[in-house]
Simulated assay, not measured.
Amino acid sequence: MKYLTHTLASVVMLSATGAAYAEASANVALSSNYMFRGISQTGEDAIEPAISGGFDFGHESGLYIGTWASNVELADADGDGEIADMEMDIYGGYSGEMGGLSYDVGLLYFWYPGTDKLDFFEYYGSLGTSVGSADVGLSINISPDYYAESGDSYYLNASVSLPLSDSFGFNASVGYQSIDEENTFGTPDYYDWKLGLTTSAMGLDLELAYIDTDLSNSDCFGGTDFCDGRAVFTASKSF
């Protein structure tokens, strides 16, 4: 648990600098499927609903902490038959902007209550900027021991979003997941991608996206449909 010291330090610094300068926010979402880096976390069918939500606390200095949770359906890695039905993420970091370039660095802990070997840490960093009317970003996540104790890993992702009109937007991303112990994780290294349309209605943010990977069924956890491409609809609200 030594990696938590970075997040705990952020908590202490936020408290020491005074709650009067901190800002709280919250979010909630309903999705037809919870896709993480192109792989479903809620089931093999095209529609496997997920309810998620989180809280964030940010300081004007750029320091922040937060938590996010969703339902999942994941088998524990030790083969004891236990199923994880919840994922909780705990994170803290520092973000800011310099010369039109935004940046974000931090530490993220993935916790799956009721299981023994699924939890893992990641260090993350991202850069973002605007090119004309488009927002572009590049991020990296690095884990010293990835999901299900599958060894060193890193995930690279490039993204772009732009307005199509006053009411609609477009976003796209492509990522690459590298895994040290592929047999332990259940797949070889892979690419994932996403194409999405966004809009707002009745006070909600709406997105319809197609998400897929380059993994075949035989490469996907011994012949499953978790890695299949699918359309995902999400309705979300931030407070």
Results as ranks from 00 to 15, higher is better:
K2V: 12
K2F: 07
K2R: 09
Y3G: 02
L4T: 05
L4A: 11
T7E: 08
L8R: 13
L8M: 09
A9R: 11
S10F: 05
T17N: 13
G18R: 10
A19M: 15
A19L: 15
A19E: 14
A22M: 10
A22C: 14
N27D: 11
N27V: 04
V28M: 14
A29P: 04
A29T: 03
L30H: 01
S31I: 02
S31C: 10
S32D: 07
Y34W: 07
Y34G: 03
F36Y: 06
G38Q: 12
G38I: 12
S40F: 06
S40L: 10
Q41S: 08
D45A: 14
I47W: 09
P49Q: 06
I51C: 14
S52W: 10
G53N: 06
G54K: 05
D56H: 02
F57Q: 10
G58Y: 00
G58D: 08
E60Y: 03
E60R: 08
L63V: 03
I65N: 02
I65P: 01
G66T: 04
G66M: 10
T67S: 09
W68M: 02
S70E: 04
N71R: 01
L74Q: 05
D80G: 00
D80C: 00
G81A: 03
G81C: 09
A84P: 01
E87N: 00
E87W: 00
D89Y: 00
I90V: 08
Y91G: 08
Y91Q: 05
G96E: 04
G99M: 12
L101P: 08
V105R: 03
G106F: 13
G106N: 07
L108V: 12
L108C: 03
F110I: 09
W111N: 13
P113Q: 13
K117H: 14
D119Y: 01
F120M: 05
F121C: 12
E122R: 11
Y124G: 12
S130F: 00
V131C: 09
G132E: 05
G132L: 08
A134N: 03
A134Q: 06
V136T: 00
V136N: 06
G137H: 00
S139W: 02
I140P: 04
P144V: 00
P144D: 13
Y147K: 07
Y155T: 04
N157T: 07
S159H: 01
V160T: 02
V160C: 05
S161N: 02
S161T: 02
L162G: 01
L162S: 06
L164R: 01
L164F: 01
S165K: 05
D166P: 00
F168I: 04
G169Q: 06
S173H: 01
Q177G: 02
D180I: 04
E182M: 12
E182V: 09
N183L: 15
G186F: 13
P188G: 11
P188D: 15
P188Q: 11
D189L: 15
D189G: 10
Y191S: 14
W193V: 05
L195C: 11
G196W: 10
T199L: 15
S200W: 15
S200A: 15
A201Q: 15
G203N: 13
E207M: 15
A209P: 12
Y210N: 09
Y210I: 11
N217C: 12
D225I: 00
R230G: 03
A231N: 03
V232N: 07
V232D: 05
F233L: 14
K237N: 03
F239T: 04
